[in-house]
């Protein structure tokens, strides 16, 4: 077990290194940080050259990379070109908001998906199964930039027009230390996220439960006289959890990255918006910093997921 863990950790470091190289190259070639000055005629050739020099964009690529890596190892992700703030500070300011929003959304999504998935599986082909299937796929079928905007227009704009109690668009200046305000502002983005994401999850829950219910040991359990419900909760759910763990594990990085689009539509001051805004500006210290944090999370969580497997499905051995 311990040697396994050690080996995984060693591999993880290797993965991280690959990721940093990959991300560095991708971000460096994803646009010009000086492009925002382009259409401004007052910026002379010399000004531009001086700025390029100052930002270190003239160094050979590997020098730029090694400089960045050297500092990153010491916990310094550099300064944003545009915000002129340490990247670590910028991320620290946004991370809590994203975590709160995304954790809430994830918990609601997973519970909703489990509920829908179980009903769907147990009552396969019934009216409820069909209704749930249709509903979850409709949620899944609308791009979130569209459904989020729709939710906002209905529950904020139209409700106000109709004189009904309405929800905030998220774009006002609101007090983050007031829990009531926080929840009020969170309702729409969480709904948008849950509406879209529970479709995929509930399908996987349904699939896995159906699969497990067909296995021999369940049949044995039934033969032993266990009731349907006991079988479901004692055996089926436990095994159906395996794919769900995989999926939720896969989603964790996106919890950190935040839902780029949802955060944007609802003006949520989180990591997703930070990322989107600064990748548009090709401010690569910020973009790289966020990617590094996300990668760290993925790598660690992958190991954790693999360990959870062994508990959930004893047939899998770590070797």
């Amino acid at each position: 077990m311990w040697t396994y863990l050690l080996r995984r950790l060693f591999q993880a470091l290797f993965t991280l290194l690959i990721i940093t190289v990959l991300c560095f190259l991708l971000t460096r070639f994803s646009g010009d940080p000086l492009a925002q000055y382009a259409a401004n005629p007052r910026m002379s050739a010399e000004d531009r050259a001086a700025l390029v020099e100052r930002l270190g964009l003239n160094d050979p690529l590997y020098v730029q990379y090694l400089k960045w890596l050297g500092l990153a190892i010491q916990g310094d992700l550099g300064n944003s070109f545009f915000a002129r703030q340490p990247v670590t500070e910028m991320i620290a300011q946004r991370l809590p908001n994203t975590l709160i929003l995304m954790m809430t959304a994830e918990i609601i999504t997973v519970s909703f998906a489990l509920f829908l998935g179980i009903i769907s599986a147990v009552k396969q082909y019934s009216f409820w199964d069909n209704a749930i299937t249709t509903f979850s796929f409709v949620g899944f079928s609308i791009p979130i930039f569209f459904s989020a905007l729709g939710l906002m227009l209905i529950f904020a704009v139209q409700f106000k027009e109709w004189g009904l109690p309405y929800l905030p668009t998220g774009a006002s200046v609101w007090d983050k230390s007031d829990p009531v305000e926080y929840i009020r502002n969170m309702i729409l983005p969480v709904t948008a996220l849950a509406f879209v994401n529970s479709a995929g999850y509930s399908r996987f829950v349904r699939t896995s439960i159906l699969e497990v219910l067909g296995l021999d040991y369940i049949r044995t359990a039934r033969a032993k006289g266990l009731t349907g419900r006991a079988v479901l909760f004692k055996h089926a759910l436990r095994n159906a959890a395996l794919p769900l763990v995989t999926i939720v594990g896969l989603d964790i990085p996106f919890l950190l990255g935040g839902a780029i689009v949802t955060e944007s539509v609802f003006s949520w001051p989180g990591m997703g918006r930070l990322f989107w805004e600064y990748s548009q500006r090709s401010d690569y210290p910020v973009v790289l910093g966020i990617l590094l944090i996300i990668s760290l999370a993925v790598v660690i969580l992958t190991i954790v997921t693999d360990i959870i497997y062994t508990f959930v499905d004893p047939r899998i051995r770590l070797s």
Binding site: M152, L153, A156, V157, K160, G170, A171, S172, S264
Partner: peptide, 21 residues
């Protein structure tokens, strides 16, 4: 005077209608 940072003109349009900005 407060300045709220929003994503795009669509968000701004909705917020103007509700008086959020």
């Amino acid at each position: 005077v407060q300045i709220r940072f929003v994503a795009d003109s669509e968000a701004a349009k909705a917020a103007l209608q509700t008086g959020d900005v």
